[in-house]
Amino acid sequence: MGFKLLSKLLVYLTASIMAIASPLAFSVDSSGEYPTVSEIPVGEVRLYQIADGVWSHIATQSFDGAVYPSNGLIVRDGDELLLIDTAWGAKNTAALLAEIEKQIGLPVTRAVSTHFHDDRVGGVDVLRAAGVATYASPSTRRLAEVEGNEIPTHSLEGLSSSGDAVRFGPVELFYPGAAHSTDNLIVYVPSASVLYGGCAIYELSRTSAGNVADADLAEWPTSIERIQQHYPEAQFVIPGHGLPGGLDLLKHTTNVVKAHTNRSVVE
């Protein structure tokens, strides 16, 4: 069995187990497998329904001669939608809004960016022009300005110390501490036991640490421990890039980060 097929099978099995364990909360999309990078042309966006009122959005972007996937989250909030992270750029984010209108038909009224990198804030200006209120932590807003990236308009308070959590509509926002970046936030959907790890969490097929220019490698494993301790009931975990899975993604990420750190020390 090929690795790609095995990865998709694991996603399907995880979703099936969740649907059985929580039949009222989960209505997993039966329309197909989780979209992969090879299936999404740059400039297009796919939506994948995880649970009743919960979707991931998947886009792709060219970077350094390669094409990478990027995940975000959409959560229903009454007759409105909360968006977590842009679709990595203005063109993708405009396509995301169009796809949401086509498939869901509810307005996106608020959006949260989970850290300051372009795959999370690139497209904020498109959201703002569409009347979406954009939010991020003060740290993310400051770092985005320093980096020359787009800056969300509103500040999220109460997320300055490791372990801080605040309720934001249908989700809980959690600051686990520094990891992929010093400002990275985690998003949890309690009604569906869905954990969105953003770039602080890796997919299972990833074996290298990737972009760690703004990471705190020493603190990252401790931050992941905080996530595990705060959300032990999480059933569906979405990484910032690639295929979702279960809580095993947290341990896998820790292993990859520690291996990278150990290699760096040896070198």
Rank of each mutant, 00 (worst) to 15 (best):
H230N: 12
V166A: 08
G158L: 07
V146W: 11
S139K: 11
Y34Q: 15
V257K: 03
G197M: 01
R141F: 03
S160M: 12
V237T: 04
I40N: 13
W88A: 00
D118N: 07
A215G: 09
P23G: 09
V146F: 13
S155E: 13
T153D: 12
T253Q: 01
V28K: 06
R128Q: 12
P190L: 08
G43K: 08
S205C: 03
E101G: 12
E101C: 04
T114P: 01
L204C: 06
I40C: 06
L195D: 00
G43M: 06
L73H: 03
L73Y: 00
Y231N: 07
T254S: 10
T140K: 05
Y202M: 15
R141Q: 10
G89S: 06
H57N: 03
G177W: 03
P107Y: 07
E39P: 14
L96A: 00
A111P: 04
L185I: 09
S56I: 12
I201E: 02
E267R: 11
A200I: 08
E233F: 11
D52P: 09
L243N: 15
F63R: 06
L9M: 10
Q229K: 11
T114L: 00
F26W: 15
L159P: 06
R120P: 01
A15L: 10
Y135I: 01
N184C: 00
I40W: 15
A94Y: 14
T254W: 13
L250A: 00
A178R: 11
A59N: 14
K91H: 12
I238W: 02
T36F: 08
Y12E: 10
S16G: 15
T253S: 08
S16T: 15
H117A: 00
L96V: 04
T140F: 04
A234K: 04
A19N: 14
G242K: 05
G123Q: 04
I238H: 01
S137V: 05
A25N: 14
P41N: 12
S30Y: 13
S191V: 09
L195A: 01
V75P: 02
E150H: 05
I17P: 04
S31V: 13
E145Q: 13
A218G: 13
S162Y: 13
G242R: 05
G242L: 04
E145A: 13
Y48E: 15
S208G: 10
S264F: 09
V132Q: 01
I58N: 06
I74S: 03
V121F: 05
A234C: 02
G43R: 08
S181V: 03
S208E: 12
A215S: 09
I100F: 05
V189D: 03
F63G: 15
P176A: 09
I104V: 08
I74V: 08
L97W: 02
V266A: 13
G245S: 06
I74K: 00
P152F: 00
K8L: 05
G72P: 03
L83M: 11
R76K: 07
P239K: 01
D118A: 06
P244T: 06
L82K: 00
Y196D: 03
P176N: 01
G131C: 05
I100G: 02
L156Q: 03
T114D: 01
L6G: 10
P35N: 15
I40A: 15
A215K: 05
N149A: 15
R142C: 06
A25I: 14
D125S: 09
N92E: 04
L83S: 03
S162V: 11
L24R: 10
R76F: 06
K251C: 06
